[in-house]
Amino acid sequence: MFDTMNAAWIALGLSLKVAGWATTINLVLGVAAGYLLARGRFWGKELLDTILTLPLVMPPTVLGYYLLVLIGRKGWLGGWLEHSLGIRLVFSWQGAVIAASLVAFPLVFKSARAAFENTDPQLEDAARVLGLGPMAIFARVTLPLAWRAILAGVLLAFARAMGEFGATLMVAGSIPGQTQTLSIAVYEAVQAGDDPLANRLVLLISAVCIVILLLAGKLLPGHQRQGSPHA
């Protein structure tokens, strides 16, 4: 009984750690990419959008395979990292973070791009004429108007990263306490016929996901009070 609970909490802790790091990475990269594609004008923009959206529709195992080709011990980036810096990403929790980041990236990127495209460019013009530089305009006008929609996407990305299975398993494997996240632990428990553990794990991850979705629902546009300052 105690062991069962302990294993579940360890797996949950690891899932939260992996999803937390993946979300932080996506917050930076997704918002930057979303802003670039919303405001930038360059050749191949829509092709880049398509490529950045691919993780949303591709099977996670395929993404995992791509990652192995890239950061695996014989991958061109992974081989270099191991030889020159002694860093090995596969079968580590950092590898799980990379897998979860990749899979959840489009959710942040897409919502950020839409949020930036929905902010009125005339407000940025008004700020320019009033003397503000580009960074100040981003911090004082663009981001405050877009953050709600971005945050909703970030929460969905966190939930997606929590539930990540396929790519994580391929890149990081299933090492208890190191890379065995909650969703992988469920699979292992069922395979081992450990129904009590599987039950607890499933209830735990369901509860976490419900909380995240409730939070995301509160933040999604259209759910705001009338006359809200952020309307």
């Binding site: 005339q122 407000l123 960074m135 004082r140 405050p144 300052p229």
Partner: peptide, 24 residues
Amino acid sequence: DYALFPHLTVRQNIAFGLQHGWRN
């Protein structure tokens, strides 16, 4: 169409151009 900043009060809108830093 005036282009007032919807997330700022009337007073904040008027004071907007007085400071050029990162904070409203």
